[in-house]
Amino acid sequence: MRKMTKKNKVLAAAGALALVAGGGGAAYAYWTTTGDGSGSAANSNGGGTVALTAQFSQGLTPGNSVPVEYYAENETASGTRVFSVSPTVSITLAAGVTGTCDTTWFTPTAPVVAGGVAVAAGATALVSTGDLTFADSATVDQSACKGATVTLTLESDK
């Protein structure tokens, strides 16, 4: 049997490599295909609620205002966005007090936040700040408002 020269070994290796590469190319072409399909799943319906709270100082007097901070607690499993808070005033007179403490004397503001405020799932965020103003009447006795509890009932669009 004849010995292979270095040149013949290189040529044999190159030929083997060409066969493997050519065979691999044929296998690739054999397995190439096309396809189509789809997938779907229903999104969350956004169920759950956003709990709103208002925080402001006590001791409001006629002719003055106090700052109000409006918060939203997201009790849902996904993030949400709150755009505005709408406060409505109610009054509970102090025990033993008679007379009128008119809700129209109290004006809450809650500016709409452009673009809304994102509230992550399970988180609480400051949504807006405003004021609660107690109007001073020069013609009506407002003494029934002494010690009264002012409550802001809140609604939002979410």
Score class of each variant (00 low, 15 high):
106 F>Y: 11
130 G>V: 09
121 A>V: 11
129 T>A: 08
137 S>W: 04
115 G>F: 01
127 V>E: 00
131 D>F: 12
116 G>A: 08
100 T>H: 05
114 A>C: 03
138 A>C: 10
127 V>L: 01
113 V>T: 08
135 A>Q: 14
138 A>G: 15
113 V>C: 00
140 V>F: 11
101 C>G: 03
135 A>D: 14
101 C>F: 03
142 Q>W: 07
99 G>R: 10
142 Q>N: 04
98 T>Y: 07
119 V>Q: 01
125 A>I: 01
143 S>E: 10
111 P>H: 05
139 T>Q: 12
110 A>T: 05
117 V>E: 04
138 A>W: 14
109 T>A: 01
105 W>Y: 10
101 C>N: 02
103 T>E: 14
100 T>K: 12
140 V>P: 02
104 T>V: 10
110 A>E: 05
139 T>P: 06
111 P>N: 13
129 T>Y: 05
111 P>E: 10
124 T>W: 08
102 D>T: 10
128 S>H: 08
107 T>S: 14
113 V>M: 09
125 A>E: 13
134 F>S: 13
111 P>Q: 11
125 A>S: 14
134 F>I: 13
112 V>I: 14
123 A>I: 04
101 C>E: 01
126 L>S: 06
104 T>K: 12
108 P>G: 12
118 A>N: 10
120 A>K: 10
137 S>N: 07
122 G>M: 13
122 G>D: 13
116 G>H: 00
124 T>L: 07
132 L>H: 09
112 V>M: 09
105 W>M: 03
